[in-house]
């Protein structure tokens, strides 16, 4: 049985979709932000793999057809962006300043917290690219001498926690403008946040998509400048 599942080309995909659906059901049922479908999916899949003795690589054989779609899905973010381009041009100052201040806030918070936790240089540069999309973040971390696998972990924690926190945070800070919400999600929680932003609306989704690209490029420039501070 284990071998049959482990060698299946679809088991990982079915397990992922099933676990995510269970997460969506739980989210709807409880209406709690912490019941994030991604978090629930991982909380179901990891024990299933550990109990059945199926390795991550064996699971990925099936699941990679899902992650394989991530590049074309990112390409499709051009659609909402195209439709909202007029709005973007009208608000370019807000867009640019919002993203730039977020990138600065990210670097500053990580710097201060790393000092407080007495983390070493290697962990500091591992964390710096945590708010940008995985493909850029991995490169930035490697270049700065960070631990790439841990950067990926911090990027995932960032994305999931950003989505979990966003509604409470928006209410607390009285963020009502769709542009501001979209920029916040894309800048703080990269592509995972953008998927959430698209659920909020097309303007949010478009701004969030743009924030991924702009914040990613700004971070590429900023990290080498501040990477040696710790």
């Amino acid at each position: 049985m284990r071998d049959a599942l482990a060698s299946s080309a679809y088991f990982g995909a079915v397990l992922s979709i099933g676990a995510y659906s269970a997460g969506m059901w739980l989210k709807k049922k409880t209406n709690l932000a912490i019941c994030n479908p991604l978090l629930i999916a991982a909380a179901i899949i990891v024990p299933v793999l550990l109990l059945t003795g199926i390795s991550y690589d064996e699971y990925m054989k099936g699941a990679q057809c899902i992650s394989y779609l991530l590049t074309p899905a990112t390409v499709c973010l051009a659609i909402p962006l195209y439709k909202q381009l007029a709005l973007l041009k009208k608000n370019k100052a807000a867009v640019f300043c919002g993203i730039a201040s977020g990138v600065a806030a990210n670097a500053l918070t990580i710097f201060v917290l790393c000092l407080l936790f007495r983390l070493e240089h290697v962990h500091y540069v591992t964390l710096l690219p945590k708010s940008i999309t995985t493909a850029i973040g991995m490169g930035v971390s490697e270049e700065a001498g960070g631990i790439v696998t841990l950067t990926v972990v911090s990027i995932i924690i960032t994305g999931v926690s950003g989505v979990i926190m966003c509604e409470k945070l928006f209410k607390l800070l009285r963020l009502e403008e769709p542009i501001a919400k979209g920029l916040a999600l894309g800048n703080g929680a990269h592509a995972i946040g953008t998927a959430k932003a698209l659920e909020l609306g097309e303007v949010e989704g478009a701004m969030s998509s743009l924030a991924i690209a702009v914040a990613g490029l700004m971070t590429v420039v900023v990290v080498p400048l501040i990477g040696n501070l710790i």
Partner: peptide, 23 residues
């Protein structure tokens, strides 16, 4: 522990500041 705390806290900061400045 430090990774989770830093990731969550800085994400809240980034989202809050980005959103407030833009708005």
């Amino acid at each position: 522990v430090p990774f989770v705390v830093i990731a969550v806290a800085s994400t809240a900061m980034v989202m809050g500041i980005t959103g407030r400045v833009a708005q």
